[in-house]
Lab assay of single mutants.
Amino acid sequence: TTLTVNTQTYTFTSEEEAREFARRYGAKTIRKTNGTWEVHG
């Protein structure tokens, strides 16, 4: 199964959650914005 996250942004309140998600789905960018963490595919 392949998950494609081209134009979607996922927002997390903790860096740990964001990094775990990025690691699991191979997202390329993690960015902190206004106190939340954004993961970009």
Rank of each mutant, 00 (worst) to 15 (best):
T1M: 11
T1D: 13
T1A: 11
T2D: 12
T2G: 14
T2E: 13
T2K: 10
T2Q: 14
T2I: 11
T2V: 09
L3H: 15
L3K: 05
L3Q: 14
L3Y: 05
L3W: 05
L3I: 12
L3E: 13
L3F: 06
L3C: 07
T4V: 12
T4F: 06
T4R: 07
T4E: 13
T4G: 12
V5T: 14
V5R: 03
V5N: 13
V5A: 12
V5D: 13
V5S: 13
V5W: 09
V5P: 15
V5Y: 08
V5F: 09
N6G: 09
N6Q: 12
N6D: 12
N6K: 06
N6I: 14
N6L: 15
T7Y: 13
T7F: 12
T7G: 05
T7S: 10
T7E: 08
T7R: 05
T7V: 11
Q8P: 10
Q8H: 12
Q8F: 12
Q8C: 10
Q8N: 11
Q8L: 11
Q8T: 12
Q8A: 12
Q8M: 12
T9R: 09
T9P: 08
T9H: 09
T9M: 10
T9L: 09
T9K: 09
T9G: 06
Y10W: 14
Y10N: 04
Y10S: 03
Y10T: 05
Y10E: 02
Y10I: 07
Y10K: 07
T11V: 13
T11N: 06
T11Q: 08
T11W: 08
T11R: 09
T11P: 02
T11D: 02
T11G: 03
F12M: 00
F12H: 00
F12W: 01
F12G: 00
F12I: 00
T13E: 12
T13F: 12
T13N: 12
T13H: 11
T13Q: 10
T13S: 11
S14Y: 03
S14D: 08
S14F: 03
S14C: 07
E15L: 10
E15N: 01
E15A: 05
E15H: 04
E16R: 08
E16V: 08
E16K: 11
E16T: 08
E16I: 09
E16Y: 08
E16A: 12
E17L: 06
E17R: 04
E17Y: 02
E17A: 09
E17D: 08
E17H: 04
E17K: 05
E17M: 06
A18V: 00
A18Q: 00
A18S: 00
R19F: 07
R19L: 11
R19A: 06
R19G: 03
R19N: 09
R19Y: 09
E20T: 05
E20M: 05
E20R: 06
E20L: 05
E20S: 06
E20F: 03
F21D: 00
F21W: 07
F21I: 02
F21K: 01
F21N: 01
A22D: 01
A22K: 01
A22L: 03
A22M: 06
A22I: 03
A22W: 02
R23K: 12
R23T: 07
R23A: 10
R23S: 09
R23M: 08
R24C: 09
R24D: 04
R24G: 03
R24T: 07
R24A: 07
R24V: 08
R24K: 14
R24S: 05
R24H: 07
R24Q: 10
Y25F: 11
Y25M: 12
Y25A: 08
Y25C: 10
Y25H: 11
G26K: 05
G26W: 03
G26R: 04
G26M: 03
A27F: 15
A27M: 15
A27R: 05
A27V: 08
K28Q: 13
K28P: 06
K28S: 14
K28G: 08
K28D: 11
T29D: 09
T29V: 15
T29M: 14
T29L: 15
T29G: 05
T29N: 07
I30N: 03
I30R: 04
I30A: 02
I30H: 05
I30L: 05
I30E: 06
R31D: 04
R31H: 10
R31S: 09
R31E: 09
R31I: 14
R31F: 10
K32P: 04
K32H: 12
K32D: 03
K32C: 11
K32I: 07
K32V: 08
K32L: 14
K32Y: 15
T33Q: 11
T33E: 14
T33S: 13
T33L: 11
N34K: 03
N34R: 02
N34D: 14
N34W: 01
N34P: 02
N34A: 05
G35L: 03
G35Q: 04
G35W: 01
G35H: 04
G35A: 03
G35T: 04
T36C: 10
T36M: 14
T36I: 15
T36D: 05
T36K: 11
T36H: 13
W37E: 00
W37L: 01
E38W: 04
E38R: 02
E38F: 05
E38C: 09
E38S: 03
E38D: 02
E38G: 02
E38Y: 06
E38V: 13
V39H: 01
V39P: 00
V39T: 02
V39R: 00
V39G: 01
H40A: 09
H40G: 07
H40Q: 13
H40M: 14
H40D: 11
H40I: 15
H40W: 12
H40N: 08
G41A: 14
G41C: 15
G41N: 09
G41D: 07
G41Y: 15
G41K: 11
G41E: 06
G41I: 15
G41S: 14
G41V: 15
